Simulated assay, not measured.
Amino acid sequence: MRLELLQGHLAIRGLQLQASVELHQFCHLSNMELSWVAEHMPHGSPISYTECLNGAQSLHRKHKELQVEVKAHQGQVQWVLSSGQSLAASGHPQAQHIVEQCQELEGHWAELERACEARAQCLQQAVTFQQYFLDVSELEGWVEEKRPLVSSRDYGRDEAATLRLINKHQALQEELAIYWSSMEELDQTAQTLTGPEVPEQPRVVWERLREQLRALQELAATRDRELEGTLRLHEFLREAEDLQGWLASQKQAAKGGESLGEDPEHALVRRGPGSRRVPWGRAYGVGKLALAGRRKKVAAER
């Protein structure tokens, strides 16, 4: 009888010891996971929007590595939680304590995931902010670089030089049109960058840049008109010189007994070895076509 009673006590003691071992094992695993969560909890200082783009990108890359590590560790946490829940459901004497441990681990893990997501969004905005201001700075630098060109008073000393300047100016106007199209993208980005920690509101910077581009565009339009006017002047002077030469040759021919024609509107236009009577207005039109051909040739040589 006493042996049976002793065996009964030993069996109870064995169950108690087994339950204690299982509890300690679970608590050990749970505490290890809590420590892991604490070590990987993002506790970085608030993002400074005055940092350079490279610094913001570096922090963003490191945080992505952390997120990958957290995601890979999620399976281990789920295994520990599952073992704790099974232990509590088996009727363990410390089931309430085990449930509380599981709840604590679940809470800390959820907090880690939220902190990682918030940090990722903050870092992404910092990168976008720095990229935005870098793009704006580059565009402002381009405006400053091109302003002397559109403000230049050099319109070409002769027709060929003016044509070359026109070609360069047309290329600049095409580039200006491209930058204008990028302003819409910058505007959309500026609307996403708001917050008390932003040192200068991107919208204000965008407005300033738009005014600079508008001023540059007005100067470019003015220079375009001046270049076209100068080209017409060179064409007129050249045509006047050609006409003077033609008149001189006709006077010389008249001295030799040749007829000049009935009036200036029916002057002879010599073409090679022969000549035919062509109205002067038509001859001028032919000269304009020839001029257009020469302009295309000069542009092609550029």
Rank of each mutant, 00 (worst) to 15 (best):
Q201E: 06
R210C: 10
T222D: 13
T194E: 15
Q191N: 02
V205R: 09
E184A: 04
P199D: 06
L219S: 03
S182E: 07
L219D: 02
L193D: 10
E211P: 07
Q188E: 11
P202V: 08
Q188P: 08
V198C: 08
T194A: 06
Q217K: 02
Q191C: 05
Q191W: 11
A221I: 00
E185N: 12
M183D: 09
S181E: 11
P199W: 08
M183P: 07
R203T: 13
T194Y: 13
R214E: 03
D224H: 13
E218F: 10
V204G: 13
E200Q: 13
D187C: 13
L209G: 03
Q201A: 07
A221M: 02
T194S: 13
Y179S: 04
R208V: 12
P202H: 04
A220L: 01
E184I: 10
E197A: 09
I178P: 01
L219Q: 10
V198G: 07
L193G: 06
E226N: 13
L209A: 03
E228I: 05
G195N: 07
D224M: 07
Q201W: 09
E207I: 13
A220C: 05
S181P: 09
R223I: 00
Q212L: 12
Q201M: 04
P202R: 02
Q201V: 09
S181N: 09
L227V: 00
V205D: 02
E226M: 11
E211Y: 08
D187Q: 15
L186F: 11
